[in-house]
């Protein structure tokens, strides 16, 4: 330990050049970090490499992450098979875009009111929403099933949009914070010029609060795109499944419990498990892309939303 702190023994200092042998604790530290990264990355890299493998290569049964002869046949097969994947992708896009737009709109309006408009019971209402978040929703799924059946919103993409669009406490919280941080002067000036509250919201608050909207839109996007249990419960119609829910039924490979021979007609064209890997990667691609380019907004979502609750 002390070696790590004080560096090389004094006698060596004179001979020390730009590079020195790293100390033992530094090596351990870096090994641990690399180990963590490998644990996260290896399954993903294996998926990517499997999805690019030809059947000859896949069935060689070696734990190799390298692909000698990459092929896109797995993707082509999964994308074109019965036209299902594009349909499920479209469903996912409809539900996600719809729900997120609804969330952004409603949370901005409410957040603005909670931050700026003075009305009776405002803070009580806001705190009630925050407190209600921490009450466990026991039996919530069963109650939702009853509610959605009653409203004829089961097997209905619009129903999913409404349902996910209503997940509002955290978005409202974030939008209120965003609007509270806005300088008041612009609004006061506009108010003097006779702007209505609606104009104030639309012309001043919305452009200035865009960063908060991006944060909640990204949180909402990742959540709705990946949501499983509620969608699975609310949709039986196979035409209306989202890609996350449909993924399980689209898999063509053997069961996890044991070996199932690949269907003969495909044996020479592609490995079924490789096609499954391609499918899973297509289902996760939009999220990874968003995460790749907009990572800092995720951190903002956590600092401004979750941690301040």
């Amino acid at each position: 330990m002390s070696v790590a702190r004080t560096g090389a023994p004094i006698g060596d200092v004179a001979r020390a050049r730009a590079w020195r042998w790293p100390s033992l604790s530094q090596v351990g530290f870096n090994l641990a970090l690399v180990g963590f990264s490998l644990v996260v990355l290896v399954p993903l890299v294996w998926m990517v490499s499997s999805s690019l493998k030809t059947p000859e290569e896949y069935y060689q049964r070696v734990p190799s992450l390298w692909v000698a002869k990459p092929t896109l046949i797995n993707y082509v097969y999964m994308w074109t098979r019965g036209g299902k994947v594009p349909l499920f992708m479209a469903n996912s896009v409809i539900v996600t875009v719809g729900a997120v737009s609804l969330q952004v709109l409603m949370a901005s309006l409410a957040g603005y009111a909670f931050a700026r408009l003075d009305f009776r019971g405002r803070d009580a209402l806001f705190l009630a929403i925050v407190v209600s978040m921490f009450i466990p929703r026991s039996g919530g799924l069963m109650a939702l099933y009853e509610l959605m059946s009653f409203l004829h919103l089961r097997n209905n993409l619009f129903g999913l949009v409404l349902l996910f669009g209503a997940g509002l406490p955290v978005p409202i919280f974030i939008m209120r914070q965003t609007f509270l941080a806005m300088p008041r002067e612009l609004e006061d000036a506009a108010r003097m010029d006779g702007a209505s509250w609606w104009q104030l919201f639309w012309r001043i608050a919305v452009p200035l609060g865009a960063s908060g909207m991006v944060v909640i839109a990204i949180i909402g996007f990742v959540y709705v795109w990946g949501e499983y249990l509620v969608t699975f419960t609310m949709v039986d119609n196979e035409q209306l499944l989202t890609i996350s829910v449909a993924a399980r039924t689209l898999l063509v490979g053997g069961s996890a419990q044991g070996w199932v021979a690949p269907q003969q007609q495909f044996l020479d064209k592609f490995a079924t498990e490789a096609a499954d890997a391609a499918l899973l990667l297509m289902a996760v691609a939009p999220v990874i892309l968003v995460y790749l380019f907009l990572q800092r907004w995720f951190v903002r979502g956590l600092t401004e939303g979750v941690l301040k609750l």
Partner: peptide, 13 residues
């Protein structure tokens, strides 16, 4: 960030 379905099915593989 990954959908739970993708993660679980990936691990099944």
């Amino acid at each position: 960030t990954m959908p739970v379905a993708v993660v679980m099915l990936m691990w099944r593989q």
